[in-house]
Simulated assay, not measured.
Amino acid sequence: MAIEKALYTATATATGGRAGTAKSSDGVLDLVLTTPKELGGNGATGTNPEQLFAAGYSACFIGALKAVAGRQKISLPAEVSITSDVAIGPHANKPGAFGIQVDMRISIPGIDRATAETLVATAHEVCPYSNATRGNVDVTLTLV
């Protein structure tokens, strides 16, 4: 998928893969990467690509919710939150490959369920993470 115009470009460099580091070009992000025990790691302290993806997708989706709500003149509460579970495992349709699936639990307190469902569905259409993964990642959105 192509974008019409780049409004912002993030640059980060990973070294060493799942047992290495990741640093952004501005130095704000500077992380130790570790492999989870479930994937053969030693349990060392650090983060991993799945945690970073979960945090990024959650934050981006909240941004999409805010944009959609703003267009509809709906005021979202500051307490909007999303908890994302990003699972990794063998790909169901590609032997030898891995895939991810995302389960998002979305909390929009103070907004009636029908309005919240419409906001979530529309945000899923405009969120860059949703657009980047559509057709390649199973994403489940649940209002809580």
Rank of each mutant, 00 (worst) to 15 (best):
I106K: 04
A121Y: 01
P95I: 00
V80T: 10
A121E: 05
I108Q: 12
T115H: 10
I100L: 11
S107T: 13
S81R: 11
V86T: 05
A121R: 07
T83H: 08
P90C: 01
I82E: 10
V102Q: 07
S81Y: 06
E125M: 08
E79W: 01
A123T: 13
A87P: 10
P109F: 04
G99E: 07
I106D: 03
P109M: 15
A97F: 03
A114P: 00
P109W: 02
G89H: 10
T115C: 09
A116R: 04
D85E: 15
P95E: 03
A123C: 11
A114I: 15
A123I: 08
E125S: 10
A97Y: 02
I111L: 12
E117K: 05
K94D: 07
N93D: 12
I106H: 06
D85H: 11
H124S: 09
P109T: 01
S81M: 11
I111S: 07
D112P: 06
I111R: 06
G96L: 10
G99V: 02
I88F: 12
D103M: 12
M104N: 15
A78F: 01
V120G: 06
A92I: 04
R113I: 14
A92V: 07
G89S: 08
A121D: 03
I88L: 15
T115R: 13
V86R: 06
A116T: 02
A97D: 02
T115S: 11
H91M: 03
I88H: 09
N93I: 00
L119C: 08
G99T: 04
A116H: 02
A116P: 04
V80W: 06
A97M: 04
V102D: 14
M104E: 15
N93L: 04
F98M: 11
H124W: 13
D85C: 06
A87C: 09
I82P: 13
T115W: 07
K94E: 10
N93V: 00
A114N: 02
K94R: 09
I106P: 00
D112R: 03
V126L: 10
S107D: 15
A114H: 01
P109E: 14
I82T: 14
L119I: 00
I108H: 09
P95M: 00
V102W: 04
L119G: 05
D112K: 07
I82M: 13
V120S: 08
P95G: 01
V120F: 12
E117N: 09
Q101D: 09
V120M: 12
G89E: 12
G110P: 03
E79I: 04
D103V: 15
A87T: 12
E79P: 00
A116N: 11
V80M: 02
T115N: 14
V120D: 02
M104V: 14
T83F: 07
I100A: 09
G99H: 05
G89V: 02
D103P: 06
P109S: 10
